[in-house]
C-alpha cells in the first residue's frame, strides 16, 4: 500500500507541475512587478527543480500539511474538513438507503425471474441508470419544491437556523430528501441488477437443492442459504465505495446547492487552486487504497474459502 501511495503522490505532483501556471499566477496580484515575483518564487522554492519541490511537498504532506488554498486563503486541510463531512453525510445516507432497497429488490427479482415484478424492476433499473442526475434533480425540484412546496429547493439547513441536536438533524434530513432521492435512484439501479444476477447464479447451485431437500422453508432457503452466498461478490464492492463517500456528488450537490466537497472541487479547478486539488486527490487516492484493503478483509470474512490459516 505504501509504495502505491508514493507512486500516486509522484503522479499527482507531476500532473500539477505540468498544468499551466504556478502558485503565483493563482495567488498574486497581476500588477506585481517581475522582480518581486521572482523574489517570492525564490522564497517559495519555485525556482528549484521539480524533484526538490516534490521533496518539500512530500515532507509537508507527511506532517498533514497540504499547504494553503489560493482561493480560500486557508489551509487545505481546514477547507476539506469544512465541506467533506457534508458530502459524507449525504453519500452515507444514500449508500445505506441503496443497500436497504436494492438487495431485497434484487432477491425478489431473481426468485421470480421473468415475472411481472421482475420486468417492472428491470425497467425501473434501466430508468435509474439512464436518467441523468442533473435532469432528474431539476424535475424533483420542479415537482416537489416548486409545485407542491413539500421540500426545500436547495441548501442543507434552513437559512438563519440556530437549531442544535435533534432539531438540527431533522432540518438537515428534511433538506436531504431530494438530493438523496437523486443519488439513491442511480445506485439502487446498479446494485439491484448486481444482486439479481449474483442471486440467479446461486439459486441454480446444487446446495440450494440440498437445502430444499432438507425440508427447510423456502424463505430460509433463499434468505439464509442463497443470499449468504449471493452477497459475497456484492459485499466486496462496498469497500470500493469508500472514496465515493468522500468525493462528493459534483452535479447533484451543485444542483441542490448542497455545501459538499463536489462544488468545491469544481471551484478549485476553475481557480487553479492547485494545493486544494492536490490535497483532495491525495485523500481520494488514500481512501481508494483503504477501500481495496477493506474489500479484501470483508471478502475473507464473508467467504470461508478465502480465509487464511
Amino acid at each position: 500500500m505504501i509504495p502505491v501511495l508514493i507512486g500516486v503522490s509522484i503522479i499527482i505532483f507531476l500532473i500539477f507541475q505540468a498544468a499551466p501556471g504556478d502558485a503565483l499566477t493563482g495567488m498574486m496580484d497581476p500588477k506585481m512587478s517581475y522582480e518581486t515575483k521572482q523574489k517570492i518564487r525564490k522564497q517559495l522554492h519555485l525556482d528549484e527543480p521539480a524533484i526538490v519541490q516534490y521533496k518539500y511537498w512530500v515532507q509537508n504532506v507527511i506532517r498533514g500539511d497540504f499547504g494553503e488554498s489560493f482561493y480560500f486563503k486557508q489551509p487545505v486541510g481546514r477547507v476539506m474538513n469544512t465541506y467533506i463531512w457534508n458530502s459524507f453525510y449525504l453519500s452515507l445516507a444514500s449508500f445505506i438507503l441503496s443497500v436497504l432497497i436494492a438487495i431485497p429488490i434484487g432477491v425478489i427479482s431473481a426468485t421470480r425471474q421473468y415475472s411481472f415484478i421482475d420486468y417492472f424492476f428491470t425497467v425501473f433499473a434501466l430508468i435509474g441508470i439512464s436518467m441523468p442526475s442533473f435532469f432528474f434533480g431539476l424535475l424533483l425540484i420542479k415537482w416537489f419544491a416548486v409545485d407542491i412546496n413539500l421540500f426545500p429547493v436547495s441548501g442543507m439547513m434552513t437559512p438563519g437556523s440556530t437549531a442544535v441536536g435533534f432539531e438540527k438533524f431533522k432540518d438537515v434530513l428534511y433538506h436531504m430528501v431530494l438530493p438523496l432521492t437523486v443519488l439513491t435512484l442511480g445506485s439502487v439501479a446498479g446494485l439491484m441488477r448486481y444482486t439479481r444476477s449474483s442471486m440467479l447464479e446461486v439459486i441454480r447451485q446444487d446446495y440450494i437443492r440440498t437445502a430444499r431437500a432438507k425440508g427447510l422453508r423456502e424463505k430460509v432457503v433463499i434468505y439464509k442459504h442463497a443470499l449468504r452466498n449471493a452477497l459475497i461478490p456484492v459485499v466486496t464492492i462496498f469497500g470500493m465505495w469508500l472514496p465515493g463517500l468522500f468525493s462528493g456528488a459534483m452535479i447533484t450537490e451543485a444542483i441542490f446547492n448542497w455545501p459538499g466537497i463536489g462544488p468545491i472541487e469544481l471551484l478549485a479547478v476553475n481557480n487553479r487552486d492547485y494545493p486544494l486539488l492536490m490535497g483532495i486527490n491525495m485523500l481520494l487516492a488514500f481512501l481508494t487504497l483503504l477501500g481495496n484493503l477493506i474489500a479484501d478483509v470483508t471478502y475473507a470474512i464473508v467467504d470461508p474459502r478465502i480465509r487464511l490459516k
Binding site: Q205, Y207, T210, A211, H225, V302, D303, P304
Partner: peptide
C-alpha cells in the same frame, strides 16, 4: 456431487 451439494459458507 458432494463437491457442490454442500453450502460453502456454512
Amino acid at each position: 456431487e458432494p463437491m457442490t451439494s454442500l453450502n460453502p459458507v456454512f
